[in-house]
Design a protein around this nucleic acid. Structure first.
Lengths: 104, 104
DNA sequence: ACACGATACCTAGAAACTCTATGCATAGCC
DNA sequence: GGCTATGCATAGAGTTTCTAGGTATCGTGT
């Protein structure tokens, strides 16, 4: 499915546990959500570039087993953004659930 | 805020309590969510047209107090779509929350 | 030796959803 | 007469995601 607007939150969240790279982040989100969340690579990489441009994450390249990986880690601004987006997510979910459940 | 992808669900849900019209649906969603959800008219009306085109809702025009209103009601297909979208919404929220809360 | 899947990155163009800004019209209040 | 609320509508832009490609390395099976 993929409700638009949640990928940025999910990426920042993934990096809050330590540095990671695109391919791993994607697999992790998919696995932990038991395949419910499944963002494509054509979505993920441009989003990572955007977050880097906004200085919410920063990158460094490392070579592991002959494979080049572009690792990302959260910046201070990224940590603040993560906290803010977590709050927004919860407020939004709560608002929708209230509207859905409230009697007329 | 407005996470993209939830408006259709919210409209179908609003109509599940009886026929209504654009302006009222918008005010209702905003009021019930205490202003957290606030879809603009330029978003709402095209979405209503799209849902009508897909035969999930159907329209009739009524004149009330000298004002022309375009009322919408759910079709059978709309009711089924509403149930399906409710399930998807809950699955999605649960998936995101699982990913956010799970330890690494 | 060679194919194939998994790993790892990337981009272009289209599609989907929402917003801003505008337009039109009526009703009620001051 | 002017202002706000009601009520509908569209055009164009912006944001987010998807589809569909491309490149390259590594490990495994045959």
């Amino acid at each position: 499915m993929n409700v638009k607007g949640s990928l940025q939150l999910l990426i920042l969240n993934a990096l809050s546990r330590g540095a990671s790279y695109g391919y791993e982040i994607a697999k992790e989100i998919k696995a932990k959500s038991r395949d419910v969340l499944d963002f494509q690579e054509g979505t993920l990489y441009p989003t990572l570039h955007k977050l880097e441009k906004e200085a919410l994450i920063e990158a460094y390249v490392a070579e592991v087993d002959g494979r080049r990986r572009r690792y990302y880690r959260l910046t201070k601004a990224g940590e603040r953004a993560l906290n803010e987006e977590r709050r927004e997510w919860e407020a939004y979910v709560q608002a929708v659930n209230t509207v859905l459940k409230e009697a007329s």
